[in-house]
Design a protein around this nucleic acid. Sequence first.
DNA 1: CGGCGCATTGATCTGAATCAAGACCCGTGG
DNA 2: CCACGGGTCTTGATTCAGATCAATGCGCCG
Lengths: 243, 243
Amino acid sequence: MSDALLRKLESFAPLFDGDRQVLRVAIDQPVRTVAARRDFAREGDAPRSMHLIVEGWAARHKTLSDGRRQIVGLLVAGDLCDLDLQLVSERDHSLGAINEIKVAEIPFGAIGQAMMDSPRLARALRLDALVVTATSHEWTLNIGQRSAYERIAHLFAEMAYRQRRAGLSSSDRFEWPLTQVDLADATGLTPVHVNRTLQQLRRDGLIVLANKRLVIPDLDRLRQAGLFNSNYLHLEQRVAAAV
Amino acid sequence: MSDALLRKLESFAPLFDGDRQVLRVAIDQPVRTVAARRDFAREGDAPRSMHLIVEGWAARHKTLSDGRRQIVGLLVAGDLCDLDLQLVSERDHSLGAINEIKVAEIPFGAIGQAMMDSPRLARALRLDALVVTATSHEWTLNIGQRSAYERIAHLFAEMAYRQRRAGLSSSDRFEWPLTQVDLADATGLTPVHVNRTLQQLRRDGLIVLANKRLVIPDLDRLRQAGLFNSNYLHLEQRVAAAV
DNA sequence: CGGCGCATTGATCTGAATCAAGACCCGTGG
DNA sequence: CCACGGGTCTTGATTCAGATCAATGCGCCG
């Protein structure tokens, strides 16, 4: 993973060599491989460390007592989970691998130290966390107001932007490891309906999805179909004033 | 407002007199009155300051280009919005008053200073922000997986807990300023269906709702009906280890 | 070869949306 | 003092997007 996190943070605001170095030291931690479909942190657990997705896709998810499951966010390489989570005694959601992934376990102290050492880096990490929250709001909007067709189009568009932001791929073709069941859990639909909706999206030429690869022939049309507005990702920032 | 924010922060972890004093100084700012149904911050605006709800209820909301509207979070007295928002150049959601409210406008610098002066306070504010994010995840789950009946029950239960946490009322009877249209926007339902669902909840004896007052005869039954688990509010924390 | 996870298809059902009208309440201006 | 209008709540009739139920196919792996 060619420093997807750094790439993402620098998309918010420039960092200097010193900042980069501080970050590299902090995230240079043992990497664990997690098999596809395995949870690597569970609701109810005491938070032990932060997680940085190094490779592959993961999901934040919650489950109701009767088994209904909702994915409340997706995580790709460069995504750092659980900043500040050491402040609580119990996790309120789980983290699970979608395909086989590599995760670095970052001690809370390491990131804390890095944020003390580099205020510019601290700002970038805070901004990243802010975008996570904003994304959660957007998902609420997505599920609450958009039709099935729009929801799925929106999700594809979001991930296209996020892939590009992390420098992982061009935004028009990339790995898509989610099964239709995952997609259903992420959008609040049933797998059967996801299947039919995907077919519609294909028929309309908005996506080409096969063998876990997604191709977006015309991102702009897809965005329109999903009423997607990238403002919540805060892709372009004025250079923040010094503290 | 008898220091609802302080009350809430202390529900997470104890503060000392010094911390309290630092917070009081920071939030002692001009208070603005906002008329019911008026936005006091709009999507697209440049963030100018933080907002502390002093009295009344407000909503975070987002609107699609075609007018569909989603409330992505509710705000009551003691809720502080937009920590870290100075890091972005444009708001991604609006804040609107539900009934007539009083809001204090807190300069970003004032809170920044307070967090520097009192690390214990800083931790409490970070924890508060974490709970906001966790609540957003819970809303995604709520709208994505629960039935209309469960969704509304869940929302009532959540607000009951939040009222109590801020020391605003007992959790079994309090002001309920949302109209059925608001409730629809918060739950991703139509007003007509909200109306019928409320009647069902009333018939089942789970709520008494009239004249903008809500009475919950049996919070435990309501919680069950909404599959409500308060873990995401992180009501009880071990005392966090010192930094 | 057997089984299992995943994608697909068809038939049917239903929770919630939509459309349409009243009823009620309250503030406001003539 | 009353007529008016707009917001809110309620009710009924109808429609529909998406859920549910049920099979089938298929590729992969042990």
